[in-house]
């Protein structure tokens, strides 16, 4: 069972660490499946209705959940306010595109994403100081408070945000001057998926780096992390600001693909839903938020089809059962199942 403790194996030790960062076959499968949805639901096959707008929304939700995963699943910061950055990003992109009248440069979708990322990154940086210290409860309430203030601001600044009605007619210019957003949402889905992949790839590099390891260490034991020289606060500020920027990109995506921005995008339930999606899918795997977003929206559609009003009940029940009985969400379940399978397979 145990390996011989010899220096000969040092090369192998490094390789084992590196191997953790390598792409697995099931990851490739996941992304191929995401692309194939484009062909299945893109109104190419007669008889299958187009679902690409819904899928684009799922992508945006998944990206929001991914940003929470970086903060919560890896760095251990409990937040109920990630929706604030999502909404902020949506409004930044929305206001920009509207002001640009559908013409480059202001209405350019990619520039809109960058602007949303920059504004939210700065907002995240500024508010990160509020979550550095204090217990989980303080963090929850500070993030919630910041989110509520931002939502109220969006509601009040009618001249900029359109108040309770939101911004309508947010028209973006064609992506890279080439691809226009179409009625079926084909461009929207591929565009969203591409943005998601870029953000995911970046996050994946980060969590598998030394920086990512130091986040896990801080989550595990901040006292010990400090004692071995980890600059705990600097690391937390960095990841919080980065996650805020990613949440902003997610919001900007939704604003661009739905061509609107509304107070609904910055409301409390957005933060709660995204947190739930992440926990449901499994925090600390990166894929949890993505899988959670798919299941969440599919469940919402299926249950909502016959009891739209009482969807909340089932959502609540799922949450309660999840907390009481399941560790690590859907991915945690799959992992446990996989481990049991392979262990029995290995046994002589």
């Amino acid at each position: 069972m145990s390996m011989a403790p010899h220096s000969k194996l040092d090369g192998e030790a490094g390789a084992r660490l590196l191997a953790k960062a390598q792409w697995r076959w099931y990851e490739v499968l996941f992304w191929l499946a995401a692309i194939s949805l484009y062909f299945v639901f893109g109104d190419f096959i007669p008889g299958i209705p187009t679902k690409l707008m819904l899928l684009s929304e799922i992508v945006s939700l998944g990206l929001l959940a991914l940003s929470i995963d970086l903060v919560l699943g890896y760095a251990g910061i409990v937040t109920l306010g990630q929706g604030a950055f999502f909404g902020l990003g949506a409004y930044v992109a929305g206001v920009m595109a509207k002001a640009g009248m559908g013409v480059f440069p202001l209405s350019d979708p990619l520039l809109g994403l960058l602007a949303a990322a920059a504004v939210c990154g700065i907002a995240g940086f500024l508010t990160s100081f509020l979550v550095l210290r204090g217990s989980d409860l303080t963090r929850l309430m500070v993030t919630l408070g910041v989110a509520l203030i931002l939502a109220e601001l969006a509601n009040q600044m009618r001249w900029l945000t359109g108040g309770a009605d939101g911004l309508q007619g947010v028209t973006s210019s064609p992506i890279l001057g080439q691809w226009d957003f179409d009625l079926w949402g084909r461009t929207a889905y591929l565009y969203s998926l591409a943005v998601l992949f870029v953000c995911f790839w970046l996050s994946r590099r980060i969590v598998h780096s030394t920086f990512g390891l130091s986040l896990k260490a801080i989550k595990g034991n901040a006292l010990r992390a400090r004692a071995i020289g980890v600059p705990v606060n600097a690391r937390l500020i960095a990841i919080y600001a980065l996650a805020a920027a990613i949440a902003g990109v997610a919001g900007a995506l939704l604003a661009q693909t739905t061509q609107s921005a509304s107070p609904d995008m910055i409301a409390f339930h957005r933060s709660a839903d995204a947190l739930l999606i992440l926990v449901f899918g499994g925090a600390g795997y990166l894929y949890g938020g993505l899988i959670g977003a798919v299941l969440f929206r599919v469940m919402q559609d299926v249950i909502g089809a016959f009891t739209l009003q009482y969807w909340q009940f089932w959502l609540g029940l799922v949450l309660v059962l999840l907390v009481l009985f399941v560790r690590g969400g859907v991915i945690g379940l799959l992992e446990g199942w996989w481990n049991r399978m392979t262990r029995t397979g290995d046994a002589p």
Binding site: R16, K20, S209, F211, L213, N221, I228
Partner: peptide
Amino acid sequence: FADLSPLESVVLAISERENAGAHWFKPLG
């Protein structure tokens, strides 16, 4: 760090000493 391995723990400690703890792009190892 209960959830890390001894190797990861020590690699992190050495990386911090070598000012390599903030490297975010290169994979661990």
